[in-house]
Write a protein that binds this DNA or RNA. Structure first.
Lengths: 189, 189
DNA sequence: GCAAATACTTAAAGGCTGTAAGTTCACGAG
DNA sequence: CTCGTGAACTTACAGCCTTTAAGTATTTGC
């Protein structure tokens, strides 16, 4: 009986793919074991429990998205950077719905600190360089940007916009226009 | 053996309370049966299955939130209305995290159409009355507002803003200022 | 007061998580 | 080359959850 060659990393990648295929909620130790033609118990040597597995998927997704966003941001500034980042974000979420869903779980702060937490915050701030906002406005703006991106993608994925005929991409670009406008003219406290 | 007096409505309300207490994910037929001192199988006379139970909680939450939002909106216009609606939304989500989480599941469109779907869309449009936006800008703005509200609340609840000392309420109010500003001066296509 | 509808229980199958103990394979040391 | 040790995987099992089917008890309405 040849061994399957399980690894925490291989399991994580496979779990991420599984999440994109069948939904993050349906990623289970049993389903993953089935994919490797192995008994469920075998996974517990590589992964603590199902929470651990899901957290690993979340961190993988955070890292992947950070890479994409960094690439999109390279050499751009101002609205260009804003749009590129936003589209990278939305594109990743649409392409990898399971991974994106994974990112929304609550991670232990130690896990996030030691890995993909920093890059995100730093990068979102990079978008704002062109708009020259002082603190704490910058933090407020970062939070608003992240909220809008996440909210839009999340509602879109959940089908929340499907009840109106207006083109969903068009609304997205208008939202980016609006964000650019408000960043260029950030209201005083 | 006195009967428990189960009803779809009573079960739904109890499930909603349970969701707020232990998290929507943890709302299970068994847990709910335990709360009524009844065997799990008893619930299946009143509710189709666990999906049905969860959908009912979602619809309950949608209706409750619609009521609150309507009350908040009464007699207000412009930025006043925007802020009142937004605070009602966020307040409900923070007060009822389980119910709020329930609202995010995908509902069969027939369910939503026949109940709490309409009021929401109509109400959000009521906010915009003071800003006099033509279509399709109005739809775009509705989508952006909803995205920002949902995104902010969702990230806040998930602890996404906890890594920075900036006051979370302050950022929220600045986001509302920004939304008001952008609505008053909606960028042309 | 009785028949029929309703409310709930018992029973049971099937799936998932997770632990413990057993077996088998791979690999380095002698 | 073979032996032993540790890692990889399986078997076995306990516990919990969902859901259906069949049985019992209680309420309701005629």
């Amino acid at each position: 009986m040849a061994r399957a060659g399980l690894t925490a990393e291989r399991l994580t990648r496979a779990a991420a793919d599984l999440a994109d295929e069948i939904g993050f909620q349906n990623v289970t130790v049993s389903a993953l074991a089935r994919r490797f033609d192995v008994k469920p118990a075998a996974l517990y040597s590589h992964v603590k429990d199902v929470q651990d597995l899901r957290a690993r998927v979340a961190l993988l997704a955070l890292a992947e998205l950070a890479d994409r966003a960094a690439a999109a941001l390279a050499g751009r500034a101002g609205k260009d950077a804003l749009v590129a980042f936003a589209n990278a974000y939305r594109g990743y979420a649409k392409e990898h719905p399971g991974r994106y869903a994974a990112m929304q779980i609550e991670l232990d702060s130690d896990r996030v600190d030691t890995s993909a937490g920093r890059p995100h915050a730093d990068m979102t701030r990079a978008i704002l360089r062109g708009y020259a906002l002082p603190e704490p406005d910058q933090t407020d703006a970062v939070r608003m940007l992240h909220s809008t991106f996440h909210g839009y993608v999340s509602l879109e994925t959940a089908g929340g916009f499907r009840r109106h005929p207006r083109d969903v991409d068009a609304s997205w670009f208008r939202a980016l226009d609006a964000l650019d406008a408000v960043l260029r003219n950030w209201p005083p406290a």
